[in-house]
Design a protein around this nucleic acid. Structure first.
Lengths: 101, 101
DNA sequence: ACCCTTGTTCGACAATAATCGAACAACGAC
DNA sequence: GTCGTTGTTCGATTATTGTCGAACAAGGGT
């Protein structure tokens, strides 16, 4: 099975941005940025596992994450370096927590 | 009539990203970045004026542009400085033209 | 005044995307 | 092998968003 992890340069910018333009996925990305490689199940916001799987797929296919199998789990990690090389400032801009209004 | 140009800091990050995650709007933003303040009508990609007006509204309400009346036209401009202050690197990341695949 | 140009708004429709439950697959443990 | 855990995939539903034509509004020119 191909894990469908595209070359980041081959992904349209709009797809990268769209992947980040969702609250749930942004929470996932932030968790990954803080906690490093994590199992899918660790992203337990108030959503079903079907929905979680969907969001992880969107992130993966947008070139933002990589996934590898580890026993019965799957470990997900941010493609930080590639992201920073191709879109310098983008991750930081998105990850920076600003004071609540 | 209120032009509905919110404080950028009050706009959720996801809304800013969503505004940029569309091909038509990205073309508009690029045109604004290159050409400076422009009339709405100058963004003549293959869309109706209703659709164009809609996209400009999305950009404006996401805090990305400002609009002012000028005779029978309306001039739109990018809120570059505010954007770069609040999301350093974001505009550059999005504007940078990478070589086509 | 009248018309033309420029935009916006409305209502409808089409396309896209988020969400869920249920069924399925892979693995480890026992 | 069987069972429980962890994820994925399928099908359906709902919500959101892009798109358009038509109607409307505001200005400038003649």
């Amino acid at each position: 099975m191909e894990p469908h992890e595209p070359d980041l340069a081959a992904v349209p910018v709009t797809s990268v941005l769209a992947a980040l333009a969702d609250d749930v996925r942004l929470q996932i990305v932030r968790a990954l940025a803080e906690g490093g490689e994590s199992a899918c199940g660790s992203f337990d916001f108030g959503i079903s596992k079907a929905t979680r799987s969907h969001h992880l797929k969107v992130l993966r296919e947008a070139g933002l994450t990589r996934t590898r199998a580890a026993g019965t789990s799957r470990l997900v990690r941010l493609r930080r370096d590639e992201l920073n090389e191709l879109y310098p400032g983008l991750l930081d801009a998105v990850l920076t927590q600003r004071p609540p209004a």
